Computed example of a mutant assay.
Amino acid sequence: MHLRAAVYLLDWLTDQDLTLASCRQNDLERWMTRDETRLRREAGHFVRWALAQKIARDLSFPAVKWNGPSQAMDDDARWATARRLLHDDTIRTEDRLAGLLLLLYAQWPAAISRLTTGHIEETAATVRIRLGAVAVVLPGPVAELALQQVSARRSHAVLAQTDSLWLFPGGQPGRPISAWAMGERLRKLGIRLAETRSTALFQLATELPSAILARTLGIHISVAVKWQRAAAGDWAAYAADVSNRTRKAPAP
C-alpha cells in the first residue's frame, strides 16, 4: 500500500515536471487536494522517508488528508496566543515574528524558514512582507517585530562578514533554520501547528476571495478554492457589492 502510494505521488510529480527535490509545500498541497488523488495518508510515510534521506526538503505535515475542517476552530485560543506574542518581550523577537506569521498568515514552518530580509519591504508609510506574488501590509506591532528582526540579521551579516541574510538563520553558517527546527520552536510556544494553520486559513478564506488568498499567502489556487468553499464565502455577492459601491462613489 505504501509503495503504491509512493508510485502515485511520483507519477504525478513527473506529470508536473517536478521531482522530490524540486517539490515544494504548495505543490504537495495541490496534489493532496485533488479529488482524484489516492492514498494520501499512506504517501506521507514515503515523503517523511524522503525528508529523512534529504531527497526532499522544505516540506511539512505531508501526510494529512484534508477534507475541510473536521471540528470547531478555536479562534479565541489563536488570538490569545497572538496577543501574547505581540506583547511578551521575554520571548525572542524571531520566535514572536515566526509565530505570528503562522497565526495570522497561515504560513507553514517550511515557508517561514526560507524567508530572507529581502522579503520585508519598508516604505515611508508601510511595512510589507512578500509571502506570495503580492506583498501584504503588516499591522503596526507586527511590522515593528519584522523591522527589528531585519535590523538584527543585517547587523549580524556585517559583523560576521557574510552575505547571508536569512531572516531566520540556522545553526550552519549561510543556511536558514530547517523546517523541522522552526516547527519545534513554534511548538515550544504552545502553538499546535496544523490546527493553528487550519484555523487561520479558515478565517482568511471567509474574508478574501480565493485568488487573492492564493496570491498573498503563496498557496496554490486549488487549495485556496477548497478553503473558500469550506468557509462558504459568497464572493459573487461580494463582487456585486463592491461594484455597486464603486458606481455610487462621488466623483473626485
Rank of each mutant, 00 (worst) to 15 (best):
L101P: 03
I120G: 07
Q71D: 10
S151V: 09
A179W: 02
L167Y: 04
G170N: 01
I177C: 07
R83V: 02
T116D: 05
W180V: 07
A72H: 06
V127E: 10
M73E: 05
R197C: 13
A179V: 01
G174H: 03
E184K: 14
P173H: 06
R175W: 01
G140L: 12
P141S: 12
L86G: 02
Y105Q: 13
E121C: 07
D76K: 09
A82E: 11
Q148V: 05
L204G: 10
I129C: 11
L131Y: 11
L201A: 01
Q149M: 11
G183E: 01
I112G: 04
S70F: 04
A124L: 13
S164G: 11
T123D: 15
A82V: 09
Q71T: 13
L204Y: 10
R185I: 02
E184R: 15
W79K: 07
W79N: 03
E184V: 03
A152Y: 05
A111F: 00
V158M: 12
R197V: 10
L104T: 08
G140E: 14
P139V: 11
L145P: 02
S155P: 00
E94P: 01
F168I: 03
A111T: 10
L100I: 08
A106F: 10
D163V: 03
I91D: 09
P169C: 05
R92H: 10
D88S: 03
A82I: 06
S70L: 12
K65L: 11
K65E: 15
A125K: 12
D163Q: 10
Q203A: 14
G190I: 11
G140T: 13
P109K: 03
L101R: 07
Q148P: 00
R96K: 10
A72M: 03
A63R: 05
A106T: 12
P69Q: 11
L201G: 03
L201T: 08
R187W: 01
E184T: 10
V142F: 06
T90Y: 05
A98Q: 06
R192N: 13
T196M: 07
Q172A: 12
T81I: 08
A160I: 00
A110W: 03
Q148G: 13
R197D: 08
A72D: 08
D75H: 08
A157Y: 12
A111M: 04
R187L: 04
E122T: 15
E144M: 13
G190K: 11
L100H: 03
A98G: 11
A157W: 13
P169V: 05
T199E: 08
